[in-house]
Design a protein around this nucleic acid. Structure first.
Lengths: 132, 132
DNA sequence: CCGCATCCTTTAAGATACTG
DNA sequence: CAGTATCTTAAAGGATGCGG
């Protein structure tokens, strides 16, 4: 049992380490389905809710709100309300949000440069020369 | 209905675009829980299955195998079997796998530099000065 | 126009036990 | 040692309808 217990402890410790790991947290922020898209759209300039929604035709209202809120909470996006009738809400990148753009660009650049190689590897692995 | 139909079409088209987007695919590869950890471990050198498992105390056999297989399929990791008794299986980064390491480092560096600011933003947003 | 609440489906992840 | 197979749980994502 002692060995098993030690395993458990190590596991818990590692779990805590992973949860506290900045990289893992960052991946949690930008790794979800819409964050990169929203950030990329806002990088072009300020946008209203409906504008972002139109730029991302696949997003549901729920996910857009959730994504925006989450990015706001993380200090990457700023939300400003103009109390007209009906209200106008504008989203912009914060300074921190702008600082993440180059990183996003790096990721996009790497993806663009190497995705073909990955596709080729997949076809080799799957034994599916063409198809799909 | 015509407007609704046009919406549907746009949505499907955008969905297809997102699925085909290299960036999105790359995020699918490195965005899951264990890929970065495994890649980072293999970046130190060749590892056997059980060694990786020990380096990542929280991973279940299932997830480790799944992650390794997926990375192998994507051409980032190479798997070589030595047919002894019992068999020995060694994992290494491929050339492509080594090329992604600098990108991973960029991500880690950004995370390390800015995570505090993100935490601060969260506390401001949550109205939770200390705690948790 | 903006977005919250509810309910439902799909996918990721984990525990466990067993095989060559 | 290096997995596979099965089952269960947790989380992400999405559709829809209501309210300020």
């Amino acid at each position: 049992m002692t060995a098993a217990e030690r395993r458990e402890e190590e596991k818990a410790a590692f779990g805590a380490y992973v949860d506290g790991c900045p990289t893992h947290q960052l991946m949690g922020i930008i790794g979800n389905k819409w964050s990169m898209l929203v950030l990329t759209d806002l990088a072009q300039g300020a946008r209203r809710y409906a504008e972002v929604s139109r730029a991302l035709p696949g997003v549901s209202a729920k996910m857009l709100t959730q994504t925006l809120r989450s990015l706001e909470r993380d200090g990457l996006v700023a939300r400003s309300v103009t109390p007209s009738v009906p209200v106008q809400v504008e989203y912009t990148l914060t300074l921190l949000g702008e600082r993440i753009v180059p990183l996003l660009d790096s990721i996009k650049e790497w993806a663009g440069r190497h995705i073909e190689e990955i596709h080729a590897a997949r076809e080799r692995y799957d034994g599916t020369p063409a198809g799909v």
